[in-house]
């Protein structure tokens, strides 16, 4: 058999081949041409995406749809394994009671942080007397994190809630500890969330003490950066930062983080911020189901609504 007929026969399965005195590696020229063609195609695809700001949605939908069952079953399996493990060593009822208390505690922490923000604002205005309750009910949905970015080039997470749960793009995502990010892409059963720590992530921010406004952005690292705070402004290490609500995504006064380091820059200070939420260890998150800013009652309104109406005043109002 001549060598070229041997090469043609190579794909036959279960046949032993030994070729002597030949180089059967595919032609270098051919593979180099293929390499150039494939690279060129991908470069063009990159260029098209950049120019049109298109993100290749169809390919992403396919990939996400294909990976979703595995991610979901992975999360389910992980949860089951962990559940069996913990229940084996702990009393079943105690574990469940702890779970319920933990959920309740998370909800209370969210309420407390929002109340604290409102309290700080009211303190600054000097108008707090009997600040009691709070804010309007905020529609929200909880979601479990089922995947993260498949590379270090971005910091995103994927949650098991999507369009069918009422989630839309640019909705704020938080945890009871603080702001997490925003919904950047929504599919039927899942949604992708851009974390604050991503290079494209960010939120309108405000220093709690001085009420100085700026913008918090990600650097691709675990720490955040507070931008656009003038060198003249006083910023202390340890100062808390909350959302300003100016980005039309997050409601006001959601904790963002704590100032860890500050130093003067050319025009603006360089401020590094430790995120309030544990962005590198997210398991469940809350999506605020409204893109409208969440309006809280003002301190005056709260005081007014909370103050008891005296019988005399009530009588005077009667015709």
């Amino acid at each position: 058999m001549r060598w070229w007929s041997l090469r043609n026969a190579l794909p036959l399965k279960g046949v032993s081949y030994r070729i002597t005195g030949l180089v059967t590696i595919p032609s270098k020229h051919k593979s180099l041409t293929l390499l150039a063609g494939v690279l060129l195609a991908q470069l063009l695809m990159l260029a098209v995406q950049i120019k049109r700001d298109s993100r290749g949605r169809l390919i992403r939908v396919w990939a996400i749809s294909a990976a979703y069952p595995f991610e979901r079953s992975g999360a389910w399996g992980y949860g089951k394994v962990r559940g069996v493990w913990t229940h084996y060593f702990a009393l079943r009822t105690t574990e469940r009671e702890n779970e319920a208390l933990r959920i309740e505690n998370d909800a209370l922490k969210l309420t407390i942080t929002q109340l604290q923000g409102r309290a700080a604002e009211a303190d600054r205005l000097g108008a707090i007397l009997g600040f009691k309750q709070a804010h309007e009910h905020v529609p929200m949905v909880g979601g479990r994190v089922i995947a993260a970015s498949a590379g270090t080039a971005s910091r995103t997470i994927e949650i098991d809630r999507g369009e069918r749960d009422g989630i839309r793009r640019n909705m704020a995502v938080i945890t009871p500890d603080g702001a997490v990010g925003k919904v950047i892409e929504v599919y039927g059963n899942t949604a992708q969330v851009l974390l604050l720590t991503d290079k494209d992530g960010g939120a309108g921010a405000m220093l709690v003490g001085s009420r100085t406004q700026g913008a918090v952005g990600g650097t691709g690292e675990p720490m955040l950066q507070l931008k656009y705070v003038a060198n003249e402004d006083n910023v202390a290490v340890g100062e808390k930062i909350v959302t300003s609500g100016m980005d039309k995504i997050f409601p006001r006064d959601v904790p963002i983080g704590t100032v860890m380091e500050t130093k003067p820059g050319n025009t603006f200070k360089q401020i590094r911020v430790q995120p309030a939420a544990k962005l590198d260890r997210l398991e469940t998150v809350i999506v605020l189901l409204t893109q409208e800013p969440v309006e809280f009652k003002s301190a005056a309104e709260n005081a007014q609504s909370a103050a008891p109406v005296s019988p005399a005043a009530a009588a005077a109002e009667k015709p």
Partner: peptide, 9 residues
Amino acid sequence: ALSGPTVPL
């Protein structure tokens, strides 16, 4: 595709 919309294909 699995890295989120911020990573171009």
